[in-house]
């Protein structure tokens, strides 16, 4: 089963969430080239999303070269160029930061306050290493 977690309350379209998380898994190396992906129907059941939406996400990922479908065999992770991976990772990280910062701005944080929070969390998370 794929570690995909959908936020159904989010205004972001479900197929977009699936695409983004699958891309992150591929770019992050958790899903390596050649790994079989669950069938559309199986993923539909696990995520409680219709096959229509899952198919759309798979089609988009295929068009973008992240996965490929071998007829009769299933869907597999494609070899993704490392620069492409980087790109995807950077984009994904950027999106997350942007969201967090937007949230802080909504609560009227100043730039310095935001930086403080950032430093604190960074310190906490890297201490264990």
């Amino acid at each position: 089963m794929l570690p995909i977690r959908l936020s159904k309350d989010s205004r972001e379209p479900i197929y977009h969430q699936i695409e983004k998380q699958l891309k992150a898994l591929i770019a992050g190396g958790q899903l390596t080239a050649g790994t079989p992906l669950p069938s559309i129907r199986a993923l539909s059941k696990d995520l409680e999303i219709s096959v229509i939406t899952i198919r759309r996400a798979y089609q988009d990922l295929e068009a973008q070269g992240f996965i490929e479908t071998a007829h009769g065999k299933g869907t597999f992770v494609k070899e993704v160029h490392s620069s492409r991976k980087e790109e995807t990772m950077t984009a994904s990280v950027q999106v997350e930061f942007e969201r967090a910062i937007r949230n802080a701005i909504d609560y009227d944080y100043t730039a310095d306050e935001i930086k403080n929070v950032f430093e604190e969390i960074l310190k906490k998370l890297t201490k264990g290493e």
Binding site: K8, I14, E48, I49, S50, I52, T53
Partner: peptide, 27 residues
């Protein structure tokens, strides 16, 4: 419905009450 259905066809008192794509309905 959540795990299996792609489309929901709703019926009320013998009359159709709409055909919906599940995810569209859910959002």
């Amino acid at each position: 419905l959540r795990k299996l259905a792609d489309y929901l066809f709703l019926m009320r008192d013998g009359k159709p009450a709409g055909l919906y794509e599940k995810d569209v309905l859910a959002t």
